[in-house]
Amino acid sequence: MNIVYWALVFFGTFFFMEFMAWFTHKYIMHGFLWHLHRDHHNKDHDSWFERNDAFFIFYAIVSIVCFYLWSYEDVWFCLPIGLGILAYGIAYFVVHDIFIHQRFKMFRNANNWYARGIRRAHKIHHKHLGKEDGENFGMLIVPFKYFQK
């Protein structure tokens, strides 16, 4: 029975992170921390790193704290929470930074309906270079209107 609880917490955390990505992007990145996110929409430097990368650090710290609480304080549910955050972070990095923005030159030739939908949705968001008017949605789950055959 413990494995069922563990799996529920892990997958619940993973899917909750999709909401957190949407919420953080809409109200924090395009809100009071726009100065960190702005260079993601309008690159104003020559560095491979962006100020926007600081947001990864926040979620990494939350995940690390969960691993600490599981390991040293014996809080069992912190392990699946920490792993759920980590798994979502890896998925987000692969889809957003590698696949969409090509920060590493991989998956260039992916051309199935899901790949086209993700690219189309992200292009619509990035057509707005300013703080306002950017359409917001999660990174892995986007509205069906972007998926055309």
Rank of each mutant, 00 (worst) to 15 (best):
M1K: 13
M1Q: 08
N2I: 07
N2H: 11
N2W: 05
A7N: 14
A7P: 15
F10G: 01
F11C: 14
F14N: 01
F15A: 13
F16P: 06
M17G: 10
M17R: 09
E18H: 10
F19C: 04
T24M: 03
K26M: 03
M29H: 03
G31Y: 00
F32A: 06
H35T: 14
H35D: 09
L36A: 00
L36I: 00
H40A: 06
H40P: 08
H41V: 00
H41P: 01
N42Q: 14
K43E: 09
K43L: 08
H45F: 03
F49D: 10
N52I: 02
D53K: 06
F56Q: 12
I57D: 03
F58K: 11
F58N: 11
S63Y: 05
F67P: 11
Y68Q: 00
Y68H: 09
L69A: 12
W70G: 02
Y72S: 07
Y72G: 02
E73D: 08
V75Y: 00
C78D: 01
L79C: 06
G82V: 03
G82A: 04
I85Y: 00
A87E: 06
I90H: 05
I90P: 15
A91K: 04
V95D: 00
V95I: 11
H96I: 03
H96R: 05
F99A: 10
F99D: 04
Q102M: 05
F104T: 15
K105I: 13
R108F: 02
A110I: 15
N111M: 08
N112T: 00
Y114V: 15
Y114A: 07
G117I: 02
R120D: 13
A121M: 07
A121N: 13
A121V: 07
H122R: 09
K123P: 03
I124Y: 07
H126S: 06
H126V: 06
H128I: 10
E132Y: 11
D133I: 04
E135V: 15
I141K: 06
V142W: 03
V142F: 06
Y146W: 05
Y146Q: 09
F147W: 04
